[in-house]
Design a protein around this nucleic acid. Structure first.
Lengths: 219, 219
DNA sequence: ACAAAAGTGTTGAGAGTACACCCATGC
DNA sequence: GCATGGGTGTACTCTCAACACTTTTGT
């Protein structure tokens, strides 16, 4: 390295706000901190960025390690670097938002000595560092993206019923959505495709159609 | 500091894409690099973040030093951290977008040994590092914000004519805008206020009204 | 038969877009 | 008086929101 910096350097972490839908509620993945600081409290999954990788690589690593998932949609959210946000010193966090279908997740859980849990968005425990603010910011981003993109599909399996998709939107936006208008909007947007198959769910009523993503631009 | 990190740390810089309107064209502030790497080529204004400050403080410093302006609107854009983006090693940049009225600017210029210049957006020189990509990303952000916010006002002096505001939008979006529809939209949005005064510009035609910001939420 | 769930169409309001002429002032 | 630039209104289209009944299937 032919040039040098006479500057002090921050530690760099990558954190992820991982959303999913469980029980028709929007939930966030949190890990229980074992070590100081904030030992015993809950925090966003994340970790240090290593030299030679970028923050999004680090997020990919974290998601694989702590949630056992690959090929997850995520994007950079914002960098949080207020002085004093970490009592250990100068620690800058590149926060990300990730969306996953909860069915695909296998939390690291007890076997990995990592205590990771889903928490409903409207009943979060106290969070370490400035993670509360990060989660709020992520929620706003998710909501605004949901309104003008097909991002909601990332929270569902590859095929899904129209009602499931609508419940995802309702859970994220925390508001009721008219069934007919929603159906029309989704079909006309071209984002989803009728697979022709129907779900035999054994419930009363006709068997609901199964839809799939149209594998186009999603971001 | 009771805790330590056994991790290598990146250098942290804060860069700014500073937009202005000059000659009815969208322009970007660039500085001529004196030292290696990329000596002699053009780059975004920016510098290292110091311990105890955050990236946005660093941007404020830069804007004061290199453009002689205070109280400038800016926001965080995105963090760029691809390995190899800086030949000196591991350097992470928190990029920002800033908007200023070019009349307020006093470029550092020759007296400060900093060679800073405005460049029209559609005729940029080759840029150092990944700054080309940062500028493109900033332009997209600016355009999308312009469509649904009053951010364009930041590019004008405190009072301005309706035509000036429209030319700002046209310069940023690179598209012609209908005069009447624009006028209606702006007035109805409540973002601007007729000051009652008119501009005596000595040109033919009636004296144009002068408008001012309504000092509300701008972000 | 009845209860539960899925599917579907119309109407009205508001936003946005296209479009042309008159008036004020300087020369 | 004429050339330049500022200022304004209407009609159409499209999007979005409100709103209820019929059909299918399980019990």
């Amino acid at each position: 390295m032919p040039y040098t910096y006479p500057y002090p350097r921050p530690a760099l972490t990558a954190d992820a706000v991982v959303f999913t839908i469980r029980g028709q509620r929007l939930q966030v993945l949190l890990v229980h901190r074992g070590g100081e600081p904030f030992a015993g409290s809950w925090a966003l999954p994340g970790g240090f960025v290593e030299e030679g990788e970028c923050a999004s690589d680090a997020v990919k690593r974290e998601l694989t390690e702590e949630a056992g998932v690959r090929d997850v949609w995520f994007e950079q959210l914002k960098t949080f670097d207020a002085p004093g946000r970490d009592p250990r010193g100068w620690v800058v966090s590149v926060a990300h938002v990730a969306l996953i279908d909860s069915e695909r997740v296998r939390l690291a859980g007890a076997d990995d000595a990592v205590d990771a849990r889903w928490w409903p968005m409207n009943a979060l425990p106290p969070l370490a560092f400035d993670h509360q603010a990060i989660v709020q910011y992520a929620l706003e981003r998710l909501r605004s993206k949901l309104r003008w993109s097909n991002i909601g599909l990332q929270l569902l399996p590859l095929v899904f019923t129209m009602d499931a998709l609508r419940r995802v939107h309702e859970a994220v936006l925390d508001d009721a959505i008219d069934k007919r208008n929603f159906h029309k909007r989704m079909v006309e947007s071209g984002a989803i495709r009728d697979t022709g198959a129907r779900l035999a769910n054994g419930k009363r009523g006709p068997q609901p159609r199964l839809y799939a993503f149209v594998p186009r631009t999603c971001e």
